[in-house]
Amino acid sequence: METLSAASYQALYLLFSGDSALWTIIGISFSVSVRALIYAAPLAILTAFLLAYFSFPGRRLLVSIFNTALSIPAVVVGLTLYIMLSKAGPLGEWRLLFTQDAMILGQICLCFPLLVAMAHATLQSTDRRAWETALTLGASPVRALLTILHEARFGLIGALVAGFGRIIAEVGSSMMLGGNILNYTRNIPTAIALETSKGSFAEGIALGMVLLFMALFLNIALGQVQGKGAVSQ
């Protein structure tokens, strides 16, 4: 039997020899997930801000809904969007199924509730005086919002990292909506699923290592950034 260590050595070789097929997959993964995060973040943070700073009817219900949406499995999101985007579905005319755009859409749906919930928790714990101080010093509401986001930046970066972590490693909706097409919609998680089904564990482990390194790197970076924030408070 091929040992884990042998597969791991081969994985490291593949990674550092610049295996182009492997790096294409890694590139697709990052480009799709980063775009999904960029599209989702502004609206998510604005939503979180409205939920944290203003009271309006249905606010509590919305907070509960976003917290519940956190635990929706990726496959359910994938299936729902699949039905919507399929030729026979209501959005079939967009012809988005099995494209990167469909994957991005799925990942937006997955990270949006997480971003809202975490940004909401962060913004809720910010000092209300910051908002009022900005306004009384003549800032417009938009400018005051930006000031609040700056004050809460460490928590918000944490939310973004968590959101990115959720979508970069997500296989269910990417597989369903992207279709795992080589050089187009095959990202790290779907490639791992495929390599495993083919029995080529080395490629799977190599890709798994990328995810692991990335998680490690992001967490260390986040720790650094938030550590900085803690000192000056």
Partner: peptide
């Protein structure tokens, strides 16, 4: 030439959609 990397049933669905 679309290399799907998925099972037969899924590939048929993809062919149908595309």
């Amino acid at each position: 030439y679309i290399e799907a990397g998925q099972g037969m049933g899924k590939v048929l669905q993809m062919a149908s959609e595309l």
